[in-house]
Nucleic acid binder design. Structure first.
Lengths: 225, 225, 225, 225
DNA sequence: AATGAATGAGTATTCATTCAT
DNA sequence: CATGAATGAATACTCATTCAT
């Protein structure tokens, strides 16, 4: 069967021998290269095995199926991302808000500039629908971290709904930085992107009351839907 | 000829008889349903034809290949999106900034709530198959529209780099609204999402100077990379 | 990738295990049988695989596409043909001209009588699918061989234009023998075909001056076009 | 069914009205163009109909199936060829042998130079296996004609087996002229091909006794098979 | 453990032919 | 008679996965 309804995505066997670890590494390296160069379309188990210099049989010794390779790649990628966030939210508890936010964004920018292509493929092409639990768990943990940070600085903030603020903050930074990596590389490397994003976030979180806005008015003026 | 030259995505033949138009519509409807229910992975020409109650031959009479169906779906979807934006940026020239921004966001929210799943599949899964020119052109036109709007209101704005502001604005709104449609449906329907997003954007655009922030300090405090 | 670049016809993978070699042989044998019995029209990859008792996947493991099977069949066939010609043109350098020519023709006759149907299908039906380089190279090498032979015996020949003579010789023998295999099997096996063809060729090459012929007269007498 | 076991190849209906005749002509013209430009592979009923500016339904009104179009094309082509041969064999009864032979060959050359591509496609690609009866009948009639001519001139000939001589003559001329049309166009237009072919044929038919040749010797000297 | 040969359901696409309008 | 929409069997080829060696 080409498609199995339920499939394991965790590595089939944890390599204990060094040779086995090398094989796994070779497979993941090959997988990354293929993903970056040819996208998910060129990502086939046979191709990965061949490029890894490993037989297809060996590949299946360590990965129960194709998705497991992607899952592992994603897992490692997210770990890298998370490390920075954890470190910063811990350290930033005492830093001035703008500094803390800027640090968070800079970290995200830095992470995206390491291998923008891999990140792009992984987030745009891989999660076809069968999202891996790594992603959801990662998102949940990051949200919790950021929310915790905001909570700790609650006194300084103008926003009231911390949940929603966390959501806006994480989504906004991720979207702008992620897309900016390929669409505005200049602003990314120059720091302009970070600067502007920081400004927006900080104003939102700590700025004074928003200019009065007539919600009802808006609905009345425009009647598109 | 077995092999192929350039891949056309424009419809192969324009239906003249009403029966033919029905067939095309049936195909697109079936395509939408399958896309929404099973994602791109379940989207096969044979399945689409079957669900449309049409022979596979008929499908290929109107669409030169599989991608052409996706392309047409995308085209129609983007046309819907763009209509709202154009209308609002035209009308909003005289409205107070918060009202205008809120209208823009509300329109986006409304568009995303029509068929969030279709929108999701179309933007997340389809692009990997090779972006269609519709998308790029659409993005360019939307950016131009929004930028034009900002320019017209320049006097009221605190931001200086209109290009970057446009980028942040469009990306932020799209990301939050798009993801929010499935991740925070409550805040989407209640208007909280619009309200909060509007606050963030308006503060960013029109708010006072950002709280002083020591870029250099940030780099010194955190040393993740 | 769905689309294609250059169509390879060389075997995709060289079998190393004996089992694999058997598979390749089985495929080629089945291909030959189908070609002989049903012509190119009945020659489909699935049919070949089935008759070979091999899965369609295995077929594609060793042949990148359908044409590659035909190409390999052709290659082997031409190798057989060429072997005889090379041997004879080498040996025949000292034999009397009629003997040498007769040998060349007899060899061709023998080659065509092995599997006349396969030869027929291969030369009549296969080329239309796009000639393989084997064929052109083969024809060029054979021409060179024959021309070299004629050159070596130039003193005995009455013809002056060796190029044209080579052309007439090879085409004539090939045409008569090839068609004769199916249209005049009696004359082929009895040796009458060889005898007569030899007579014609030898008279042409070594015979005295051609009976005077009035080219202009011919044109004047007949006015068909 | 794509392939019908038994199929009629004669036109379904003889057009009596001028409009119908125009349609048939348009179809055949389009068929010829497509055949010449794209070979049998590009020759599809839909394409022919489209290029003929006729609906596919109309095409099937006059031709019961695809092969019927090819058959009709072939029939017309052979009629052209035969006309020349008949005329010459009739006139040539009294002309000197070399002149008669030369006329025959020149006629063949002329016929091949009219539309070498069409002739090539028709004879190489079309008769895939399902040969049309036109061809066999044509070949039989031409053979009879040529044989009759030889018989009438029997007194002048050195050959005894007129059947075999006819066979060699027709096959040789056809092969050399047909292939020469594309492979040696220079010799074809200059008349060199005709001249040389005539020399070969005339020597064969009317030349003195062939140089003694030891059939047995040849077999002894070369032992390829 | 490792290898790589074998598998076969699945997928996109073509094209001769029919038939309702 | 003409049209062209509809049909669907057929076909080349892919790729995740298994399993004998």
């Amino acid at each position: 069967m080409r498609q199995t309804r339920r499939r394991a995505v965790s590595p089939r066997k944890t390599p204990v021998q060094p040779r086995a670890a090398q094989t796994v590494e070779a497979i993941l390296t090959a997988a990354t290269r293929i993903l970056v160069r040819h996208g998910v379309k060129g990502f086939t188990t046979n191709t990965v095995a061949e490029r890894a210099g490993v037989s297809i049989g060996s590949l299946y010794q360590y990965f129960p199926n194709k998705d497991a390779i992607l899952s592992e790649l994603m897992r490692r990628h997210l770990i890298d991302l998370e490390r920075g966030i954890n470190q910063i939210t811990a350290t930033a508890l005492t830093a001035p808000l703008p500094v803390a936010i800027r640090a968070l964004i800079d970290d995200n920018v830095a992470a995206h500039m390491i291998d923008p292509k891999l990140h792009g493929v992984l987030t745009e092409q891989v999660p076809q629908l069968g999202r891996f639990r790594w992603q959801e768990e990662f998102a949940a943990r990051v949200s919790a971290r950021v929310r915790g940070f905001l909570e700790a600085r609650k006194a300084e903030l103008a926003v009231t709904d911390l949940d929603l603020a966390t959501y806006l903050l994480t989504r906004t930074v991720e979207a702008c930085v992620h897309n900016g990596a390929t669409e505005r590389p200049g602003d990314m490397t120059s720091g302009r992107m970070s600067e502007e994003l920081t400004a927006m976030i900080v104003k939102y979180l700590a700025g004074g009351p928003p200019p009065a806005l007539a919600n009802e008015t808006a609905r009345a003026v425009f009647s598109n839907h």
